[in-house]
């Protein structure tokens, strides 16, 4: 049986929000926000990250989505679903967005919330209200770490394909790292940020050709299984990318540009070699400047790559990310 597919569903618009404040590795180190060596992180390709100040995770999500509407002619009423994707568990709450506990001093994580009612204050609903998306039902997508936005995009396409009256889905991702915690995670430096993408039937660009996602639940415990996670990363990444290309009937040589997540440049040098893609065809410019914005990297990079003129219509793009949980996700777009 043929797969039911709408070949015109794609990512029609992208916007991002990055906090103005930028901290270099040296500044992070001086502030006690690095667990590892700044020199090693620099050798892995990082220079600095964006740090949220007063703005909350939901503030950043609203800012990114607001920018999306400001820059594009979008009928807000056409949006039938908001998929609000978060990597950090705390990002699924409004823990420092005017909640009762936040007013008593912003907690460091959802676990520190003092009132049960805080656990039912959802960023997705607030975003829907703030942006006046009156026809949009909201759905949270989480528990996939940095791969959460990929899951949102995949679900968006699937919903549009499945539901005749659904034309557009707004996918949003926003994560704000606990301010006083170390910013380096398994040799990557975490930045605060948000992104928004409009997945639309009849999109003019970025047709979603293929989405794949693998979860290795055995490696769910990121704290105690870090070594196993590190060791699993490359073999699984290579296997998934090759499977995705195969499903799309493409080879790596058909990919004009790889749109990465902003983990270490070194890891992309290695993965590029493993999949047979030279570093010149991987959009790594944002790794040093932006750092790893948890789940927003790929969309942010896709926008920057588009603006840079490195992509032309019809190009095949390969997006790849990796998230705790443990998840690997890959997507192929036709620009």
């Amino acid at each position: 049986m043929d797969r039911v597919t709408d070949y015109e569903t794609g990512i029609d618009a992208i916007a991002e929000y990055l906090p103005e404040r930028v901290a270099t590795l040296g500044e992070l180190d001086a502030a006690g926000l690095l667990g590892g060596s700044a020199a090693v992180l620099a050798s892995f390709g990082f220079e600095g990250v964006h740090l949220a100040g007063e703005e909350s995770n939901v503030d950043m999500a609203i800012a990114a989505a607001g920018k999306l509407f400001a820059e594009n002619e979008i009928d807000r009423d056409e949006i039938g679903v908001v998929l609000y994707a978060t990597a950090l568990t705390s990002s699924s709450t409004m823990w420092n967005a005017g909640s009762a506990s936040a007013m008593n001093g912003a907690p460091e994580s959802v676990l520190e919330l003092s009132e049960v009612s805080d656990l039912f204050r959802y960023p997705a609903s607030r975003l829907q209200a703030e942006l006046q998306l009156r026809n949009a039902a909201v759905i949270g997508v989480n528990q996939l770490g940095c791969a959460s936005i990929f899951a949102a995009l995949r679900l968006a396409r699937a919903m549009i394909v499945a539901e005749d009256d659904l034309k557009s889905v707004l996918c949003v991702s926003a994560d704000k790292f606990p301010p006083s915690h170390k910013r380096d995670l398994i040799y990557n430096v975490v930045s605060d940020g948000a992104c928004a993408a409009l997945v639309r039937r009849g999109a003019a660009r970025n047709r979603i050709v293929e989405c794949t996602h693998v979860t290795k639940g055995a490696l769910w415990d990121s704290g105690s299984l870090e070594n196993e996670i590190l060791a699993a990363y490359f073999p699984t990444a290579k296997a998934l990318i090759e499977r995705t290309l195969d499903k799309a009937g493409l080879t790596i040589d058909d990919i004009a540009l790889v749109i990465p997540h902003n983990v270490s440049l070194r890891s992309w040098q290695i993965l590029g070699r493993l999949i047979g893609c030279p570093l010149e065809r991987i959009f790594t410019e944002n790794i040093s400047r932006v750092g790893h914005t948890v789940a927003s990297d790929n969309l942010l990079n896709l926008r920057r790559a588009t603006e840079s003129g490195r992509i032309k219509r019809g190009d095949h793009l390969l997006l790849f990310t990796f998230g705790y949980g443990l998840n690997w996700a890959c997507m192929i777009l036709e620009h």
């Binding site: 040799y187 290795k216 639940g217 699993a232 490359f234 073999p235 290695i270 070699r273 493993l274």
Partner: peptide, 26 residues
Amino acid sequence: RAIEKPLIVDLDTYDLFVRSVEEAGN
């Protein structure tokens, strides 16, 4: 445990990986 087979890679890739592991200090 869903452990993947070790990849068989060329020497330059392996060297880059080894160097990264050494630098990371894990």
